[in-house]
Simulated scan of single mutants.
Amino acid sequence: MLTHIIERILQALFVMLVMSALVFVGVYAIGNPIDVLIGPDVTQEIRQQTIAYYGLDRPLWEQYFTFLGRVLHGDFGRSFVFGMPVLELILSRLPATLELTLTAVIGAAAIGVPAGIYAGYKPDSFLSKLIMAISILGFSVPTFWIGLVLIIAFAVELQWLPAGGRGDTASLFGVQWSFLTLNGWTHLLLPALNLAFFKLALMTRLARAGTREVMLTDTVKFARAAGLSEWTVLRRHVLRLIAIPIVTVFGLEFASTLAFAVVTETIFSWPGIGKLIIDSITSLDRPVMVAYLMLVAFVFITINFLVDLTYVALDPRLRKGRA
């Protein structure tokens, strides 16, 4: 088990190194941020001084190794636009995206998994058919369209919830969170619902498919023959057997939602890292773009690593194979 963990950590470090090179070259080889940072009426001397100040006059490979040396010391550079350390800027926006993502994915799993299990357990009931119809709608409708409908319905027509912003926040461990205040929850609800709709459909269909498959296995037949109640069968056997694919999807969806909540954050003016990267792309703020993409790679690698460890915890056969 320890050997497996060490191997995964070494693989993760290698992947991060490769990703850093690809991301840096891909971002720094495109466009010229100087045209955005300074006006067209400045003198050529000031233009050259600005280029030299940001190190853009050096070869690309030299810029990369300079960047890599700074990263090893926890320095991702300074934002061209905000004039502050990139890591500090991203970390200031991360809590907003993190609480939005957790609310959406946990809510989708809490509703979608039981709904999917019920739909798989009683596939011919009216409620099961209704659940599957809603899940198809979740796959079919674009996220931005759902967001606009939610804003029109609940913010414009009914005026129950605000259309955008983060609302009031409260401090916990030195970080500002919206979910700690009632006003913050009113601002959080619509973007979280918009973000959760596709995840809800995915979790529902996955749980239903797994339940339908498990209900036909000998394990369930023997459990019923032993006189166990249906609730016990569902809880002890069905849920345990479908747990691994659900954990996999939960981890990957959490990572992808955390990394790519751009559309939702833009529609609802949610001040997270998704909106930050859109603004950075518009202004060619290269340090922020590189740091964001590396953060995305790190999140996916970390989530995959944790999911792999969860496999071992859920399946005793894997523990024996890696002992």
Rank of each mutant, 00 (worst) to 15 (best):
R58N: 02
I117N: 00
L206T: 13
G120S: 06
T219F: 10
L98R: 01
V307L: 00
T310P: 08
R317D: 01
T181A: 12
A21R: 01
G69R: 09
V247E: 14
R93M: 11
L295E: 11
I136F: 06
A201N: 00
V71K: 00
A223C: 07
I117A: 00
A29I: 10
R8C: 10
M294Q: 06
R235W: 06
L241Y: 10
A52Y: 03
M215I: 15
G120P: 06
F14C: 08
L190E: 00
K221Y: 12
E265Q: 15
E88F: 11
T282Q: 10
E62Q: 05
T143H: 09
S256G: 15
V233D: 01
R317P: 01
T232D: 09
V249H: 01
I136A: 08
N32R: 14
I30L: 11
L102V: 13
D41Y: 10
V156T: 13
L284F: 08
L193Q: 00
L37F: 13
F76L: 02
M203T: 02
Q159G: 11
I106S: 08
V156S: 14
F300N: 12
M203K: 00
S128I: 14
I5V: 14
R212M: 15
A291L: 08
E230D: 03
I51Y: 03
W177T: 07
L137G: 07
I267W: 09
A243Y: 04
G321C: 06
L94A: 15
L72F: 05
F260S: 13
A109D: 11
L252N: 06
